[in-house]
């Protein structure tokens, strides 16, 4: 009854670290994409598109988090 579920604890740790690192990487990559290259004043079209795609993927992950959070979607 009181035994510790170490596997679940490990899963929580790995999922937490993995998800956080993934979202941070996407956000950081999006920021990189929106930053003009050295010597340039504006961001090229390709980098801007890449930035928006990365932001959209980040947003989808956050929406997935909402899906996990709201019981109505899981009932």
């Amino acid at each position: 009854m009181g035994s510790v579920n170490w596997m679940a604890l490990l899963q929580v740790a790995l999922v937490t670290i993995g998800a956080t690192v993934a979202i941070a990487t996407l956000m950081s990559a999006a920021n990189w994409a929106f930053t003009p290259v050295a010597g340039a004043d504006t961001v090229t079209g390709g980098r801007r598109i890449l930035g928006f795609v990365l932001l959209c993927v980040t947003g989808l992950l956050i929406i997935f988090g909402l899906y996990l959070m709201i019981p109505y979607f899981r009932s």
């Binding site: 579920n5 679940a8 604890l9 899963q11 929580v12 999922v15 937490t16 670290i17 998800a19 956080t20 979202i23 988090g65 996990l68 959070m69």
Partner: peptide, 12 residues
């Protein structure tokens, strides 16, 4: 957020 969601779904 990740910790709260992961823990609630895995029973902690």
């Amino acid at each position: 957020m990740a910790a709260i969601l992961a823990s609630s779904h895995l029973g902690f």
